[in-house]
Design a protein around this nucleic acid. Structure first.
Length: 496
RNA sequence: GUCCCCAUCGUCUAGUCUGGUCCAGGACACCGGCCUUUCACGCCGGCAACACCGGUUCAAAUCCGGUUGGGGACGCCA
């Protein structure tokens, strides 16, 4: 059987956004599923808009997501000779012709057509039937020209069979003679893309529905170049709540892959979310390991309906699609602790909170602590913010619990040190049961609710309103830190 | 405007090809309850959709036609 070869061909004119990442993901899964190859090709023929920063960002983003490729990155501009040769072949075989119409002329024609509101398919064919003499004359005058593809003057429709959408048809008469080479000699996307796909022996072109009109024209190109037409699969698009195509321009960083990296998302969680946009396995399964996704994936289960990225600007709680957050949370609290440990390590390192002992003598403590605190967290960032008190003695006290659980009870300034004193004599018995017993006992003696002591303790020890069971916190932190922090309670009153 | 694609809960979607098991299933979000020293997690329960009209049929979310709605494309961008 023929080797499956797919490609991801981003144009480096901006960062990698989630739509592009989704396209890359589906191609990646497809390649893996069929033991095929994924080719990364940077389509940088638009010299004015292509940037190195963008190239780096795209590659960086793909790597972060864990989407690896088998060949490339190739750069389209390195194959200009191929593209020009193909254009010349088309010219020689009569599949293309030189067009001397100027940009300005065409623009004027377009505008008048638009004004009359009866705009027909593109180019009017002025240069299509130029005689050899006329062409020679123009050449001698040095009039610049572009190369246009000569769309066959056929009755009926052109069609191709899309793996997702079924048969797609379009009347030949609806397809204009499109430009394949600019007047400066630079070949255009439509041609380059086909020439490269032929050279790279691409078998399946999996891309967005926004390419559908390109595909009909490219099918013509494959025929004219006498190459086998690949299988096309047009995926539904991802839109915003206003049903607009998502883009950097109108949506900003929330659609950038980089944003999720900076926000502390787990790369695979983003992939998992993305694969559910326009695809489902036909079962109720929503969480997939890589292997499971590759196993379950099938192009035939791709939806034909555009999906909406449920993002509401200005929402403090749901700063991106709530389902994406939910999926990230799911992974955060169910993934292997060792794996989570590696991800959190990076967070701790950037905050200078990493202790090498977490890899050795304190590894058990490190992983157990992550397991204790992760249930309440949303992203990896929470480990160094809300969870900071577990890894550092310098942590902020949230004003809300400070007021509610501490300042409201001024006597805590003596109660908590009292508690600390009783804790301090505990040695091997400094465990959850004993610390709880002692705390309740003291509350009883002071004739206050245990909650007063417990909640005050939580605020002082972690700076947080909420957290794990208080006595798990106490044992995790250890006697020394607990005693020190409780004794230090007066600083909170002093500061207030 | 022209061509192409699409149409199930607020969002992601199952079900449509092969009509009956669907007074439409799951997930997220939301609401309520349980658990609890806090907040979560977890568990239980609830709210919520077949765009509209007509046709075919004993029977339509499912097939057909139309309407409406949405999207995409219409560059010497990719």
């Amino acid at each position: 059987m023929e080797e499956v070869r797919v490609r991801f061909p981003p144009s480096p004119t901006g960062y990698l956004h989630i739509g592009g990442a989704r396209t890359a993901l589906f191609n990646w899964i497809f390649a893996k599923k069929h033991n095929g190859k994924l080719i990364l090709r940077i389509e940088d023929t638009d010299e004015e808009r292509s940037t190195q920063t963008s190239i780096d960002g795209i590659i960086d983003g793909l790597q972060w997501l864990g989407l690896d490729w088998d060949e490339g990155p190739y750069f389209q501009t390195e194959f200009t000779a191929d593209h020009v040769a193909a254009a010349n072949r088309l010219l020689a075989s009569g599949h293309a012709y030189k067009c001397y119409c100027t940009k300005e002329e065409l623009e004027r024609k377009r505008e008048t057509a638009l004004a009359e509101k009866k705009r027909e398919a593109g180019y009017d064919g002025t240069c299509r039937h130029l005689s050899a003499e006329q062409v020679q004359e123009k050449e001698e005058q040095g009039i610049p020209s572009v190369i246009r593809f000569r769309v066959p003057e056929r009755q009926g429709t052109l069609f191709y069979d899309d793996e997702v959408l079924g048969r797609i048809e379009r009347a030949y008469s609806e397809i204009e003679d499109f430009v394949i080479v600019r007047s400066n000699g630079k070949p255009l996307y439509l041609l380059c893309n086909v020439v490269d796909d032929i050279r790279d022996r691409i078998t399946h072109v999996i891309r967005g529905q926004d390419h559908m009109t390109n595909t009909t024209r490219q099918v013509l190109l494959y025929d004219a170049l006498q190459a086998k037409i690949p299988v096309f699969a047009h995926m539904p698009l991802t839109l915003d709540l206003q049903k607009r195509k998502i883009s950097k321009r109108s949506h900003g960083e929330v659609v950038a892959v980089q944003f999720y990296r900076e926000k502390g998302f787990i790369p695979w969680a983003l992939c998992n979310f993305l694969c559910l946009l326009g695809w489902n396995p036909g079962t109720d399964q929503e969480f997939f390991s890589r292997e499971e996704l590759i196993e379950s994936f099938d192009l035939s289960r791709m939806s034909r309906v555009n999906s909406v990225f449920n993002y509401k600007p200005g929402d403090a709680k749901f700063f991106t699609d709530p389902k994406l957050i939910a999926i990230n949370e799911h992974y955060l609290r169910t993934m292997e602790l060792a794996e989570l440990g590696d991800l959190v390590r990076k967070e701790l390192e950037t905050e200078n909170l990493w202790d090498p002992a977490y890899e050795t003598t304190r590894r058990d403590w490190y992983l157990a602590t992550l397991g204790l605190i992760r249930d309440r967290f949303h992203t990896l960032k929470d480990f160094t913010t809300a969870g900071r008190a577990y890894f550092s003695d310098k942590y902020a006290i949230d004003p809300k619990p400070l007021a509610k659980n501490v300042l409201k009870f001024p006597e805590l300034v003596t109660w908590l040190p009292q508690l600390a004193e009783r804790f301090s004599v505990l040695d091997t018995t400094f465990n959850a049961e004993e610390t709880e017993r002692i705390s309740r006992e003291l509350a009883d003696e002071l004739q206050i609710k245990p909650g007063t002591l417990i909640n005050g303790m939580r605020t002082v020890l972690t700076g947080q309103l909420a957290g794990p069971s208080m006595f798990d916190i106490v044992t995790t932190l250890g006697r020394e830190k607990v005693v020190a922090r409780l004794n230090d309670v007066d600083r909170l009153f002093a500061a207030a």
